[in-house]
Every structure is written in C-alpha cells, then in structure tokens.
Amino acid sequence: MRSRRTDLIVLALLLTALTAALLLAQGRIAARKVLTPLRLTVLAVVTLFIGWWGQGQLSIVTVLGVLRTAAEGGSFAFLAYDPFSLLLWGFAIFGLFLWGRALFCGWLCPFGALQEFAHHLGRRLGLPQVPLPPIWDGRLRYIKYGVLVGLVSLLFLAPAHVDTAAEVEPFKTAITTYFLREWYFTAYAAFWLVAGLVLFKPFCRYLCPLGAAMAAGGLLRQRSWIARRTACGSPCQLCRVKCAYGAIEPSGSVRYDECFGCLDCVSIHDDAARCVPLILAARKKQQLEAAE
C-alpha cells in the first residue's frame, strides 16, 4: 500500500470531490454550457488515471469472488491486495444508496468512459446515429441480467470455466492490458468501441454483467434524485426524447435501474429556454401581465 500511497490520496480526493459535487451542486454541473466539457473532463481523468494508470477498472470477477468466498466461508483478505480498486468499490457501493448505479456506471467506469468518447467521436465524424427501435431496445436490456445469472450459475456449477466466461467483459483487454492481447480479445473490445460510434454505449446498456449487478444493487437507493414536474410526460416529452439511455418513461418518471447519471435531463429540467413546462408557465405569466 505504501508504494501506492500517492495514487490512493489522489484517488480519494477525486472521488470525494466528484461525490460532493454531484450531491451538493448537481444543478450547477448540469448547466447547459458546463455539463458536456465538465463531464468529458471527468471521464478523461477516469480513463487515464483510474483506468490505465491506476488499473482501477472494477469487474464482475470481484463480485463473483466475493460470492464464492461467502458461500465457502473463506477469507475476504484478497480484497485488500488492491487498495486502489477497493477504494473505488467503497465509493461505488456508497453511491448505490444515493444514486443507484449512476455514480459508477455513469462517472467512474473507464470502459464506459471509452464508450462515451466513441459516441462523441462518431458525432464529430458525422456518422449517422442508429438508435434501436424501442421494442428491441427494451428487450436487449435484459440480456445483461441473463449474462449475470449465467456467470453466477457457472460459479457454482462449473467454476473452472468462470474466468473464461467473464471475458464477456472487454475490461481486461481495453484497460488492464492496454489492448495488448491475442487478436480475438482485442477485436472483441474494439468491436464494442466501433459499435459505440453509431449506437450509444451498447455494451454498457445491453451486455455488461457488472452493470446488471450495479442495477440490482440500486435497490438500495434511498432517494429519487432527479426532479420531475407534473407536466413531465404530459404535455412534455423532451427529456424522454433526449435521454440517450432510454431511462425515462413516457409518463416522465425515471427508470433508475437504467439511469447512468449523465444529467442531460437535469440540464433540460432547469433550463427556462428548453423545459416546456417552464416555457408555458413564462408565456402564461406574460399573458396575465399584458392583460393587466
């Protein structure tokens, strides 16, 4: 731990600052001119420092290891071998109580950050964005839960194959080994990033078993942290249309199990120039003032 003391201090400061900012200054972060550059800066730090430098990409492998140790009554001392990742796990679990999966999946996952950068690159290149039809989008979201159940089943029925099956996560290839692996592992990781150029974060949304575990852990969430109005959903559908994750229902309510905390809807909700209910309220006020 001594050899990584500086890394741990920097990581603790970064995680504390991010958590405090999201908790205490969400509205300021979501301001229209602030959100995208700030978010991309944070994601760059996550990729470079937490991911490639610190090797802090969390993985479903750790979850499976904890489950197996708990079932066998073994020691959890193996978690302390990597204090950098352990600190990340601590903040990710703490975040489940406040934001559900959003803190980790939306802000602290290095491969998720790479997927988001791929999305922005695709837009910069002028590539057509091809969101799936809602019916298929809804169906494909359940695949990640099936993958999670399959991995947990293998853990107890065929443990010798768990490490191989866990390669469904491209994290080891893209983050841990910097893409320097056998060609088929590299091609698999690259596939998801290339797909992300035209389809928004497909691995995160449809296949990630760790994301499924985080979504399940989101049941610990103690608050609804995205403000909604009565008019959200009817007559206003802007947040739902703009939500790239498809985490907002036609009624206007938020599906926190699918919310990655990008704050796009918060940005719209607080913007008097974009939020339809605020625009209608301002027009009504002007009409009343004119009538007087």
Rank of each mutant, 00 (worst) to 15 (best):
R2P: 03
R4G: 13
R5L: 15
R5M: 15
T6L: 12
D7C: 11
L11I: 08
L11Y: 13
A12N: 05
L13S: 12
T16G: 12
L18G: 05
A20D: 08
A20N: 03
L22K: 11
L22W: 07
L22H: 11
L22S: 03
L24G: 01
G27I: 10
G27R: 14
R28Q: 15
A31R: 14
R32C: 00
R32M: 02
K33W: 13
V34F: 07
P37R: 01
L43W: 06
W53S: 02
W53D: 03
W53Y: 11
Q55S: 02
Q57H: 13
S59A: 02
S59L: 07
V63R: 04
R68V: 02
S75Y: 01
S75T: 14
F78L: 02
F78Q: 01
Y81R: 15
Y81M: 04
D82I: 01
P83Q: 11
P83M: 04
G90A: 13
A92S: 10
G95I: 10
L96Y: 13
G100C: 02
R101Q: 05
F104E: 08
C109R: 00
C109D: 07
P110M: 10
G112M: 10
R123L: 15
R124D: 12
G126A: 03
L127K: 04
P128H: 00
P131I: 00
L132M: 06
P133D: 13
W136S: 09
D137V: 02
G138Y: 05
Y145C: 00
Y145N: 03
G146Q: 13
G146I: 13
V147H: 03
L148N: 08
L151D: 00
S153M: 13
L155V: 10
F156G: 01
L157E: 03
A160V: 09
A160L: 12
H161M: 09
D163K: 00
D163C: 00
A165Q: 07
A166G: 05
F171Y: 15
A174M: 14
I175D: 14
F179Y: 15
F179E: 05
W183S: 06
A187F: 12
A189I: 14
W192C: 01
W192Q: 08
L193A: 09
V194H: 10
A195L: 15
V198P: 09
K201H: 08
F203V: 01
C204F: 12
R205D: 07
Y206C: 01
L207N: 03
L207T: 09
M214T: 05
A215Q: 07
A216K: 07
A216H: 04
G218K: 07
G218P: 04
R221A: 08
I226L: 08
R229K: 12
G233P: 02
Q237V: 10
C243L: 02
C243Q: 06
G246W: 12
I248R: 02
E249H: 15
P250Y: 00
S251M: 01
S251P: 08
Y256T: 01
E258A: 15
C259N: 02
G261C: 09
C262E: 03
C262S: 05
C262G: 04
C262N: 06
V266H: 00
S267V: 04
S267N: 09
H269F: 13
H269A: 03
H269Q: 10
D270H: 06
D270N: 12
R274H: 15
V276W: 04
V276N: 03
V276K: 11
A282F: 08
A282S: 11
R283N: 06
Q286W: 14
E292L: 11
E292R: 13
